[in-house]
């Protein structure tokens, strides 16, 4: 019997929590100062994608389910929020709620079908379902086809706060995204989250302990889809636009990219990844199609060199949780 060299360090866990608190404080500070330095719409866009990537990471990073169809929830929630706000005259909070719930319902349907398969088949089914709904979006009259739904009114939040003010809108988005971020953190650190991690680590063993793993996976899928829906709904209000780009498969690919670059299964990775990718798209826009090539190179570099993603590598180097 080989004995372990050192006795276990019980304090490690507590230090891990501290690093998360510090990182969260830094993130909030940057986001509070941010709009005075950078263009607020850019920050809001990045925040929406950060939430989208966090929702995606909940599934792939903590349950081990790689969905390649998350644009379905993001894009359709965006359409339905825009439709509710523009044509039905919903106030922003109700429109966002409506979009979010539509993400939940779509997640329930798509998840019930997809979790029956594993690995690459799971990814393929989610992709197929998302593409099917993309073509519905192309054809359905209410989505406006190629034009999308334009001039979506931001309205007055709770009838009081005028969201057409950029800063008011920014605060609204920031609060929603931070609250969702904390909610996701709570999910992965709940009794439910513990079971999810067990399923990721060894599903047959989790089954043999008496867990009905399909139900846990479905529940996680619905939570992820709901939060992806929230991200899509918020984005519709930020840009006052819902368009085909958001339901197309490239959007599903982009969220995979953001999560991988930032760090799969890390708490802050998806946020960092989202900001980086969105920044590249904005600030490298002058290079036109070359943005895709640059993205491709970064992606390849990440897979080859930074296997854990930016935040994952950082956390590993510092020996903390991030």
């Amino acid at each position: 019997m080989t004995a372990l060299a050192d006795p276990p360090i019980v304090e490690a866990r507590r230090d891990g929590e501290r690093s998360l608190v510090v990182a969260f404080a830094v993130m909030v500070a940057l986001l509070v100062v941010g709009p005075f330095v950078v263009y607020p719409v850019f920050l809001m866009q990045a925040l929406c994608f950060a939430l989208f990537a966090c929702a995606f990471n909940l599934l792939v990073g903590y349950v081990g389910l790689l969905s390649f169809g998350h644009a379905l929830f993001f894009g359709w929630a965006s359409y339905l929020c825009a439709h509710a706000a523009k044509r039905w005259g919903f106030p922003p909070e109700a429109a966002v709620l409506f979009g979010t719930l539509s993400g939940a319902v779509l997640g329930l349907v798509a998840g019930s079908i997809a979790i029956r398969r594993q690995g690459i088949y799971f990814a393929m089914i989610t992709l197929a379902l998302a593409q099917m709904m993309y073509f519905v979006a192309v054809r359905a009259p209410f989505t406006g086809g190629e034009d999308g739904i334009q001039d979506v009114p931001r309205g007055h939040l709770f009838g009081v706060f005028d969201l057409s003010h950029e800063m008011t809108m920014y605060v609204f988005i920031l609060v929603m995204v931070l609250a969702s971020f904390l909610f996701i953190y709570r999910i992965i650190n709940s009794p439910f989250g513990e079971v999810l991690k067990a399923i990721r680590e060894n599903e047959p063993r989790a089954i043999s302990l008496g867990y009905n793993t399909d139900r846990y996976k479905l529940c996680a899928f619905v939570l992820s889809a709901t939060l992806a829906g929230l991200a899509g709904a918020l984005k519709a209000l930020v840009f006052q636009l819902a368009s085909l780009t958001d339901v197309y498969w490239t959007m599903s690919g982009e969220v995979v990219l953001m999560t991988l670059v930032g760090g799969l299964g890390t708490v802050f990775g998806p946020v960092v990844g989202a900001f980086l990718i969105v920044a590249m798209e904005n600030y490298l826009a002058q290079f036109g199609q070359w943005v895709l090539v640059i993205q491709g190179v970064i992606f390849v570099a990440c897979v080859l060199v930074f296997r854990r993603g930016i935040v994952g590598e950082l956390a590993h180097a510092l020996g903390v949780r991030l």
């Binding site: 709570r186 999910i187 709940s190 439910f192 989250g193 846990y216 939570l223």
Partner: peptide
């Protein structure tokens, strides 16, 4: 075990 809103400190 479906309580996703609770902290794991309950464990």
């Amino acid at each position: 075990s479906f309580d996703f809103w609770r902290g794991k400190s309950v464990l």
